[in-house]
Structures are given as C-alpha cells and as structure tokens.
C-alpha cells in the first residue's frame, strides 16, 4: 500500500530565516547593504577598492568578502583602511545568510554607512541565496561576452544595478567584441528597473554615475 503525505515546506528555509534577521537588523540600523555578484575575475574587488578610495570623504564603507579560499581580497580592501571581514567558504559556491549574520556582528556597523558583500565569484549559485541585503549588484566584464544576460538570466533579473566593467579594453583596440547596447537591451528585458553603468575600474571612466547612485541610495536608506 502507498500513502502520500503533503509537506509544502521550503527547502532553503534555514537560509531565509537568517536573511530575514539580517535585513531587519540592517533596516533598524539604517545601513545600506549591497550584495555583489559576478563570475570570477570580472573586477569586483578592483571596483570596491576604487569606490572606497574615491568616496572616502562622503560614504563610510565596510566590506564582507566571500571567497572559496584565502583572505587576499580582504587584504586588498584593508589596504584602503576600510574595515573588511573575510569569509572563507571552504569549497561552497556561495555565501550563506548565516555566514553574513556572523560577519555583521564583527563589523563595527555603527561607524559605517554602507556594507558591501563581495560574494564568491560565480554567476549562478549566489543569486539563489538571499543574504538580507537591500539590493544585488551584478558585475559583467566586457571580456566575458555580451550574451551573458540572455544565458544567465537569474542574476540580471534580480539585480538593482548592472556594472559593465573593463570598458577600457574596448577602447584600447584590443580584440574584444562586446556590444554594450545588446547587453543593456537583454538585461532590461529581464528587469525594467535595472540601472546600468558601463565603467572601467582601472581608469575610473563612468564611475561618477555609479557613485551618484550609491550616494542617492545611502541617503534614501538613512531617511
């Protein structure tokens, strides 16, 4: 004989509970928290280092760094004198909300305006795990190809901002054929409200619009 039992239970409920706790904590503290997601090497840490340095007098930034191994990225952030906490996931392809909850307790939140979470370099898995952030920032570098929004829709559908990085490579006459308009159009089809900024974290080109967006968002959260 067979018997069917209805369950109807969310499988990742444990992560969701931590994410909710984190977002409530951040809302009470009125701190902006952004979860940065991209493939390995698209330039997340380079963007953060430049952003922290150039906004030093306007926004106090702290960073939670997620990597499978090493604390190299946290060291690069600390070199700017911004506080950083490294999470080594030891093989896991994404950060979990529990890990972020722990890190938030160890950052001096009251001294900060904005907390960036640099997720593990992976365009797929991190988008399935809410961390309690206010918004996601997708980074796509021109070397990766303009078809990525169409091929990996999840992260582009869920992000508030898309940073198209390394645009200096397009101008340098290198053999990179990335159609910025195509990437923009595809991302906008998935997400009408996504803000798209083509930037070069190396030369600084285009970063001013990104900084404006950050300053506006910090202001809105502060209320």
């Amino acid at each position: 004989m067979k018997k069917i039992v209805d369950i109807g239970k969310k499988i990742l409920i444990a992560n969701e509970e931590y994410a909710l706790k984190n977002s409530q904590f951040l809302a009470e503290q009125k701190k902006l928290c952004l979860n940065m997601i991209s493939s390995p090497g698209s330039g997340k840490t380079t963007i953060l280092v430049r952003t922290i340095t150039e906004l030093k007098d306007k926004i106090k930034i702290g960073v939670i760094e997620g990597d499978i191994q090493t604390d190299l990225d946290a060291k690069r952030i600390k070199a700017t004198e911004a506080p950083a906490i490294q999470i080594e996931t030891g093989g896991s392809c994404h950060l979990s909300a529990a890990q972020v909850s722990n890190a938030l307790e160890n950052l001096l939140i009251s001294t900060l305006d904005l907390i960036f979470i640099e997720n593990v370099g992976n365009l797929v898995c991190p988008s399935a795990f809410e961390l309690g952030e206010w918004g996601k920032i997708a980074v796509l570098s021109v070397a990766e190809g303009d078809d990525k929004p169409a091929k990996y829709p999840a992260i582009f559908a869920k992000s508030k901002v898309l940073l198209i990085n390394k645009i200096d490579l397009l101008e340098a006459g290198t053999q990179v054929d990335f159609d910025i308009e195509r990437a923009k159009a595809d991302a906008s089809k998935l997400n009408k409200d996504i803000a798209i900024f083509p930037v070069s974290a190396r030369t600084g080109k285009g970063m001013a619009e990104w900084y404006n967006w950050l300053e506006e968002s910090v202001k809105n959260i502060r209320g």
């Binding site: 067979k2 018997k3 039992v5 209805d6 369950i7 109807g8 969310k10 990742l12 999840a154 559908a157």
Partner: peptide, 22 residues
Amino acid sequence: SEQFDLLPDAPLILEEIEFETE
C-alpha cells in the same frame, strides 16, 4: 507591450512524500 515585470521566482519546495505502508 514590452513593458512588464517579472514576478518573484517560485522557491524550492518539498511538495509531498510517498510512503510504502504494510
């Protein structure tokens, strides 16, 4: 119209389990 929003994706759910009973 091309002006539309994507609704939140359905979460991962364990819907039901089938058991063998004597």
